[in-house]
Design a protein around this nucleic acid. Structure first.
Length: 310
RNA sequence: GCCGCGGUAGCUCAGUCGGUAGAGCGCGGGACUGAAAAUCCCGGCGUCGGCGGUUCGAUUCCGCCCUGCGGCA
């Protein structure tokens, strides 16, 4: 029996993934699984450019609006949810269409993540405490002793990853570099097609700037005000683009114009980082998008490729 | 027309008591496996407005010219 099919549409922010995905989904009886760390939050709609009910064309969307803004989210939760959704969609005869811009999320779905090493309560704080008043590279040296390969692959200043690697080591009794070898992802289990939307950089930046202006028109500021009124935003949620900059404005750190400027800039930088991730992924088949090209046209192009590869 | 202050990296500017220059912002590249829309690393030769003069040597001093801003007529 041949492998079941999964399709990905990836691309930087503001590349038009969501709309293209809906059109494609209609043609191939797909259900969309959002591959996005922020659209999971209820109430964060404008800032995350979440698809609206009347734009879904009746296509089922998963992993949108699944948690409250005071809850945390991470790749492991994401991966578990996606795996069970894929099974369910396949059982019902549909095609899972994964749509999103997070390189790490894509990578982990494709190649897997190791189990049994979540965040240990209090560990990070404790080890930060231990490193206080010690040399700058104290934790790095510590990691070097227990897990040289990981230490070599990290920059000594990359504190966050150093601490995480130590956390895994003390929790699993195994270096993270070793744990990583025991992963399995979707790639070997299914027939996977990955399409990436490719824009000229300047054209993409223009789209980003325009979209941020559009968000302000739609009431981004009120959305954020509302969120901070109602919730103590979680560590992950409050880092959303648009959210953190407007919180800065609301706390009087800078003007509203400055907040708008920062959102545009940070979104551009984000897009650049996303592209760094996609560029090195050889399994992506790139779809070149020219300025002004319609989503219908792009979707039709992808559809043709999908049909020819089945 | 006269007086004053400017013309240095894409932008805003610093600086060189004469030995061809540096910050911020913007931008580019990279990393990445339980915070990822996060986090971390790397990247600045640019006719120092133009032409002459002085000097071993000028972006730095002098002269003229072009040009922006302000003031006086």
């Amino acid at each position: 029996m041949s492998k079941k099919q999964i399709i990905f549409i990836v691309g930087p922010t503001a590349s038009g993934k969501s709309e293209v995905a809906v059109i494609l989904a209609k043609k191939i009886n797909a259900e969309i699984i959002s591959c996005d760390s922020m659209q999971v939050y209820r109430g964060m709609d404008i800032g995350t450019s979440k698809i609206k009910k009347n734009e879904t064309r009746g296509i089922t969307h998963h992993l949108i609006d699944v948690i409250e803004p005071n809850e945390e989210f991470n790749v492991a939760i994401f991966r578990d949810k996606v795996n069970s959704l894929i099974d369910k969609i396949h059982r019902e005869g549909g095609v899972p269409l994964l749509v999103g811009g997070s390189g790490l999320y894509m990578k982990i779905l494709l190649d897997g993540i190791f189990d049994g090493a979540g965040e240990i309560k209090g560990f990070r704080k404790k080890i930060e405490e231990e490193a206080r008043n010690k040399p700058d590279d104290y934790l790095y040296q510590k990691l070097k002793e227990v897990d040289p390969p990981t230490a070599d692959s990290l920059h000594p200043k990359d504190r966050r990853r150093i601490i995480r690697a130590l956390e895994v080591y003390y929790h699993m009794g195994m270096p993270i570099s070793e744990a990583k070898e025991k992963r399995k992802g979707l790639w070997e289990k299914y027939s996977v097609l990955i399409f990436g939307l490719a824009y000229d950089r300047q054209a993409l930046y223009k789209r980003i700037n325009k979209r941020v202006d559009f968000m302000f028109e739609k009431g981004l500021l009120d959305e954020v005000k509302n969120l901070v009124d109602k919730f103590k935003l979680s560590r992950t949620a409050k880092n959303a683009l648009g959210c953190k900059e407007l919180i800065g404005f609301l706390e009087g750190e800078y003007s509203l114009d400055e907040a708008r400027r920062l959102i545009k800039r940070n979104t551009r930088r984000y897009a650049k980082r996303q592209l760094t991730w996609f560029k090195k992924e050889p399994r992506i088949e790139w779809i070149t998008v020219n300025e002004g090209e319609s989503c219908e046209g792009i979707a039709a192009g992808i559809y043709a490729k999908v049909k020819s590869e089945i």
